[in-house]
């Protein structure tokens, strides 16, 4: 009969202990919590609020309802242009980078001295500052004296004015993006290394061809890495900014004018913070939707080992 109050007491004590543990945990992650609140959560919420206002920084924001969104969708030709360019860039760059990085990973997977050295060489460009890389590539792609055209004319091919020609400028940026596949490559190398060799041996004994092994063993087992790299590439290329900003400023004739440039221009050149925020939110939702659609379409094919 005296058990009830005692267990109630114990329960209360257990709850207090748990609360203390939670408090202690929160204290430990406190630096991140503060940073998250001040540098992420607050700006995101404010950006949503500003997106419903007219805000020039100099004067306080004025509520305009959905006007920014309506203008973007109905009146703004630059929005359409920037969005189309960004989607074209992502659609060209991501598949090419994926193919190249998997091919490189297959070539560089072995642990020989040569493969290790080349792996380092392939990885190095990912560490080069993007503005320095962009300026270096402007020189490589220079129409008159660049490396690309020197090589092309050496084998008798025409010499396009890469960055100066609206038809070639986008291609130039896609080619340049292939130079920084080193990050994805080393992730694929790690994934390939994780595939147990016993699986290949068993398949070889069963008489399955090389191609069959690649399709039925390698591909499923590296599919989580493909998913990871593709999502990273999606998020990155849908907000591409620094390289084209330095190299072309969006030109020639808006051929490389990307979405983030338009957000940047509205926020910092035209001082239209409200409009920029609405643009940024549309971009955010688009990135989320495209990523989610990609997840949904490949979910069944991604094979997680348990």
């Amino acid at each position: 009969m005296t058990d009830a109050p005692r267990s109630a007491n114990a329960a209360r004590r257990a709850r207090a202990v748990e609360r203390a543990a939670t408090l202690r945990g929160l204290l430990w992650i406190g630096p991140w919590l503060v940073g998250f609140a001040v540098f992420l959560l607050y700006p995101i919420v404010m950006s949503l609020i500003y997106s419903f206002t007219d805000y020039s920084i100099l004067e306080p924001p004025v509520y305009v309802g959905l006007e920014n969104y309506r203008d973007i969708m109905t009146k703004d030709a630059t929005f359409g242009r920037a969005l189309r360019n960004t989607l074209v860039y992502a659609a060209a760059s991501i598949p090419l980078c994926t193919l190249l990085s998997i091919a490189l990973a297959l070539l560089l997977e072995r642990d020989t001295r040569g493969a290790r050295a080349v792996r380092a060489v392939v990885f190095l460009p990912t560490l080069v500052p993007v503005s320095a890389a962009a300026i270096g590539w402007m020189w490589l792609l220079n129409g008159d004296f660049g490396l690309f055209n020197a090589a092309l004319s050496a084998i008798g091919l025409p010499r396009p004015d890469w960055l100066g020609n609206p038809r070639w400028a986008m291609t130039s940026l896609v080619i340049m993006s292939l130079w920084t596949v080193g990050g994805a490559t080393v992730i694929y190398v790690a994934a390939l290394r994780d595939v147990p060799t016993t699986l290949y041996e068993a398949a070889a004994i069963d008489g399955i061809t090389r191609l069959g092994r690649a399709w039925h063993i390698t591909l499923p087992l590296i599919s989580p890495a493909i998913l990871f790299n593709t999502v990273i590439a999606l998020i990155g290329s849908l907000q591409v900014f620094a390289a084209p900003y330095v190299m072309t400023r969006g030109g020639p004739d808006f051929a490389t004018y990307f979405y983030t440039m338009y957000v940047y221009a509205n926020a910092f050149t035209y001082a239209r913070m409200g409009y920029a925020s609405a643009l940024a939110w549309i971009q955010f939702l688009l990135i989320l939707m495209i990523t989610a659609a990609f997840f949904a379409s490949v979910r069944r094919r991604v094979h997680y080992r348990v």
Binding site: W32, V38, S47, I235, F241, F284, I287
Partner: peptide
């Protein structure tokens, strides 16, 4: 749960934060 929030923050595009972070 909070760790999952932390991982999710890696997906936030910088473009969304550009203008309001400047104001902060």
């Amino acid at each position: 749960g909070l760790f999952r929030v932390l991982l999710a923050t890696m997906m936030i595009p910088f473009a969304v934060l550009m203008a309001p972070t400047y104001l902060v």
